[in-house]
């Protein structure tokens, strides 16, 4: 199981995500923005971590979505690779047009960092196999621009149980129709160890591992 964590300039959850993937048993590499020869060949999973890529100075994720490394990310996903975008990574996926909708400033205009209650709406994606459908879980959020605005009918994977940021239909995470791309605002990597307050997030990484193992067995 080989995973790459993309490091954009301004990413700041790259090391946290690396740590959580390691704990789950992945071989993990960083994919740095300054590495010209970067390739995702041979990787099973690419993660776009949280942070403030390019300072989020224009719109969150906008600049990152249009640079070289992102073209390779897109190619990887179009070939069926598993692509996970967390927080700023989710915003990048939106800006890349890989997931439908947009993420705008929170309803109250303020950054929010807290644990929130969620429900797993779809446990058939490679990222959510280990959950039960309708399972109630707790994950941290930390974002200023997490208000999901719906375009069309997205494949909703996670939903907040209460209105936390004004998202349409309390949507917290969506997947591509094909299911190999997931974006979510909450941080599963921050809920991967009991000492940090919970382990529900770890199940996202365990799901991916389970999926990859079963796929490997099929092959």
């Amino acid at each position: 199981m080989k995973a790459a964590v993309v490091v954009y300039p301004g990413s700041n959850c790259d090391r946290d995500t690396y740590h959580a993937l390691k704990l789950t048993g992945f071989d993990v590499d960083y994919a740095y923005f300054f590495d010209q020869d970067l390739s995702f060949e041979g990787y099973d999973l690419v993660v776009l971590p949280g942070g403030f890529s390019y300072g989020d100075y224009l719109r969150p994720g906008a600049v990152a979505a249009r640079e070289n490394i992102s073209r390779k990310v897109k190619e990887f996903a179009e070939n069926g690779g598993l692509l996970l975008g967390i927080c700023n990574g989710f915003q990048v996926l939106m800006e890349m047009g890989l997931l439908p909708g947009a993420l705008l400033q929170n309803e109250k205009g303020k950054f929010i960092c807290r644990w929130v209650d969620l429900v797993v709406e779809d446990n058939t994606t490679p990222f959510t196999l280990a959950f039960k459908k309708g399972e109630k879980i707790r994950l941290p959020i930390a974002h200023g621009f997490g208000r999901y605005v719906k375009v069309g009918e997205p494949r909703v994977v996670f939903r907040y149980r209460e209105n936390v940021n004004g998202s349409d239909e309390k949507i917290a995470g969506v997947a591509s129709e094909s299911g190999n791309i997931l974006g979510l605002m909450p941080h599963p990597e921050r809920a991967s160890e009991e000492i940090l307050g919970g382990e529900d997030g770890r199940k996202v990484f365990l799901s991916i591992a389970e999926y990859l193992e079963s796929r490997g067995a099929e092959k």
Partner: peptide
């Protein structure tokens, strides 16, 4: 290309 997000 960059400055405007046509979705919103």
């Amino acid at each position: 290309d960059l400055l405007v997000n046509p979705v919103v």
